[in-house]
């Protein structure tokens, strides 16, 4: 059985996905070598395709067992 606290969320959240693709698109736009064979020209499209294929050399660091605990004063 999976430990839900450790494992959730199992995939990238939509925020993480946006962030990874965004960061990668910026790299490509600034001249980084593209890691896949593609006909696409727009760096964002290339980054999306790379993400789909799972070749982007970027991942996220999840703090405190993947749950974000905010302090109370940070809520307002």
């Amino acid at each position: 059985m999976i430990d839900i606290k450790r494992a959730f969320p199992f995939e990238y959240t939509r925020f993480e996905k946006a962030r990874i693709i965004g960061a990668r698109a910026l790299q490509i736009a600034m001249g980084a070598p593209v890691l896949i064979e593609t006909d696409k020209i727009d760096p964002l499209d290339i980054a999306k395709e790379e993400f789909e294929k799972g070749v982007i050399p970027i991942t996220v660091k999840r703090r405190r067992e993947s749950f974000v605990w905010l302090e109370r004063h940070e809520l307002f």
Binding site: A18, V60, K61, E74
Partner: peptide, 25 residues
Amino acid sequence: RGITENIIVGQPIKLGTGDVELIAK
């Protein structure tokens, strides 16, 4: 520490996309 202050100052906020920490794989 909060959202409003960081928006005013012009920093990314700790919410949604801004809360993601990227590291090199």
